[in-house]
């Protein structure tokens, strides 16, 4: 194991975050705060409880995921796309670094950033809404799993993308809509058929409900199913990354 290489990539990536501290951390915090102000305080104050949870608190797990998913994808994809774009990737490819080591470095750094962000968001939320976490260990573990899965997914996108537009397409066109429709702002039981059934095909539903169960002990989907869905997604991402390095897809011609 080339630990020095993992550390070098990890430090380099976090260094990049440090240089762009404002965009990296302040922007998502401001965005999430706006959601809390509008949906949590302003509108939430006039809404009934959902599943026995005040509306402001009900949306926290979903809002947390909304930010973490897009930031994880964004950071991890940019982390590997940028060296491909500027050509500096040559160094990683010519170094005695295995695929696993490179992925640990890049994905580890992106995940670290997401977890820091998650902590900041949860602290920010306390300024707007009263809430407590029922299963903190489950919440932390589930958050870690989701973060790693989506950082892996972002890494794949960063390898696949052949332009900056493509880098944006998946988070903007797929992940954000699915998160909005995935029960972030409502319980899927509030939906009429056939939308309720259709929603069950949205993978984000399982993530949001897994997180909500960890927070409040109640969810539309059993927590075991949420966990299984997340693990399955992670397994698919690992499989694709393995394929990328085996075939050299877009990395080694």
């Amino acid at each position: 194991m080339n630990l020095n290489a993992i550390l070098a990539i990890y430090r380099f990536e976090l260094g990049r975050t440090w240089r762009t501290l404002f965009q990296s951390l302040a922007t998502p915090v401001i965005t999430t705060s706006l959601y809390f102000i509008v949906f949590g305080s302003a509108i939430g104050g006039r809404m009934a409880e959902v599943d026995g949870i005040p509306y402001g608190a009900f949306i926290i797990p979903g809002l947390l995921l909304l930010t973490i998913l897009s930031e994880s994808i964004g950071n991890a994809s940019f982390g590997i796309y940028l060296p491909r774009f500027t050509g500096t990737i040559y160094e990683v490819l010519s170094a005695p670094v295995s695929a696993t080591e490179a992925v640990i470095g890049y994905v580890g750094a992106a995940a670290t950033k997401s977890l820091i962000l998650a902590t900041i968001i949860l602290v920010t939320a306390t300024f707007f809404v009263d809430y407590s976490i029922l299963h903190p260990f489950w919440a932390a573990g589930f958050l870690l799993l989701v973060t790693l899965s989506f950082c892996l997914f972002g890494f794949i996108l960063g390898v696949w993308a052949d332009g900056f537009e493509r880098l944006q397409i998946v988070p903007l066109m797929i992940v954000t809509p699915l998160t909005f429709l995935g029960g972030t702002f409502y319980s899927i039981d509030m939906l009429p058929e056939p939308w309720r059934t259709a929603t069950l095909f949205n993978p984000i539903v399982y993530l949001v409900n897994g997180m909500r169960w960890a927070f409040y002990g109640t969810a539309d989907v059993a927590p075991g199913v949420s966990l299984a869905a997340t693990l399955a997604f992670m397994a698919i991402c690992l499989f694709i990354i393995n394929w990328i390095f085996r075939t050299g897809y877009r990395l080694r011609t």
Partner: peptide, 21 residues
């Protein structure tokens, strides 16, 4: 091909680490 926003010493240290030193 260089990291335009990086600093000279850091980028050389990065290379050294990448090669396992």
């Amino acid at each position: 091909a260089v990291d335009m926003f990086g600093h000279v010493r850091h980028t050389v240290e990065f290379s050294r680490g990448l090669f396992g030193k």
